[in-house]
Every structure is written in C-alpha cells, then in structure tokens.
Amino acid sequence: MATPGAPLVAPVPLVWRLVTVVEVVDETPHARTLALDVPDWPGHVAGQHLDVRLTAEDGYVAERSYSIASAPEDARVALTVERIDDGEVSPYLAGELVVGDQFEVRGPVGGHFTWRAQDGGPLLLVAGGSGLVPLMAMVRHRAARASGAATELLVSSREREAVLYRDELERLASAEDGLNVVYTLTRSRPAGWSGYARRVDAPMLAEVGPAASASPRVFVCGPTPFVEAVADALVSLGHAAENVHTERFGPTGG
C-alpha cells in the first residue's frame, strides 16, 4: 500500500452541490453514464469518487459513493452507474433519471487510487466489470494530457456487450500512443473471438505486462473476489505491494 503524499484536496469542508443531469448515455443494458453540470466543481484527480445524495419527497435521504468516469480536463463530471436490480439508488440513477433532473453530490473523495499524468508510467490497469469506471478516468486523463505513458489496460467482462466504453476504447487504442487494451471475456465470446476467455490469472498478467521489473504503477478495480485474486497474482509475480493500488466494490453497492 502506498503512503499518500501531499493531500490531493485542500483541507476544506466538502459541501453538497446541486447538480443537473445534462446528458444520459446507455453504455450497456445494465449501465448508464450521467453527465452532470456541477456548479463550482473544485476539480478532481483521475480515480477519485464522489458521494451522491437523493432526497425523497417525504424527506427520506439515501447516500452512495460512485467513481468519477470523466477526466479532470472534461467540462462535465460524468458518473457511470451499473444498475443493481434490488438496489435502492442505482435503479433510480441508471433508470429513472432524465436530462434536466437534479440531485446532490459532494466530493471529490479518495487519495490512494489516483493517477496524474505527471506521475508517469508505465501503468497497468486491471478492470473487472464496472471496475473500469475509475480506470477510464485515468485513460481519458492520459489522452487529454497526451501523456504517452506506456499503459496496459486489461478489461475482464462476462461478455462483449457488457464492456463499458467499447467504441471509445477502440478509438483511444488506435491512436497507437502507448495505450494497449486487452480483453478477456469470461462467460461468452463472439464468433471468431481470439482474445482471452478466462478469469484474470498470473499467466495472463505476465503476458499482458509490464513485468514487475519495470515497476509499473498498478491499479485494480472490480468486485472483491476479482480484486483479491488479481492483487494476489500480481504479488506472486513480484510486483511490490506498495505499487499495487486496489479499489473494491461488493455486490451491495445498491
């Protein structure tokens, strides 16, 4: 685990801000991106998250945390929310909300799971399912800053249709500026699929690289069993624990 350096945010209270949904994008059958107009957003670092607060007409309040999908350079703050069918908040955010609706957020929050272009590379980003969201903020930040840091992005998904940001990733990878995107599909594959077809394991991580000897900064995000398995495999390959940053979410995100 890395020791955090200077705080990423000034030591000021995090205030609730009323945001307006300005665009809704269906990313997959289960996930939706909300582009938000956030007045006086203090800015964020790629990888950070924010808190969402919803208030029902009877005064009932629900709060949840969501990773920020947009780069710090983007004009709008974007969240990508995966719908958990028996959840309380995600079915609303990823189903009910329409352009023009408002809710509250505060943030940004989080200091260890962050990457700035000036931190440099090489980078190894490993995403399980919607764990891609904070890693996408890093990839977008990298592109916005033309960082060129050697970056391997390994995306694990049940099926191709469940991969977030597919077209954008294809476009970013085709720039051939040092970003390489590798997929593994664990449940079903399209005809003729030539990529990986199993859960992420140590041999796959060794093939994708960069090797531990290159001391890449590694960021792993996904469900807990995924993150546990990937982090253990990385340590077994010789990656220093302090270079391996993890962010985990369970099935209870709601």
Partner: peptide, 29 residues
C-alpha cells in the same frame, strides 16, 4: 431540507432492522 429528487422514493423499510441502530446516511447490508 435538500431539494427533492424527482421520482425517488424510499423502499419499504426492512422489518428486521431497528432504524435507531443505523447512523445517518448508512444502509444495512
């Protein structure tokens, strides 16, 4: 009170949860 979120409703409270044991902003797992 913060502004309402149009169309957001509380789910039926869980009968197995004593609300006095749940701090503000928390939900029971």
């Amino acid at each position: 009170m913060p502004p309402f979120s149009r169309g957001f409703h509380r789910r039926p409270p869980r009968e197995d949860v004593d609300p006095s044991r749940v701090p503000p902003g928390q939900y029971v797992v």
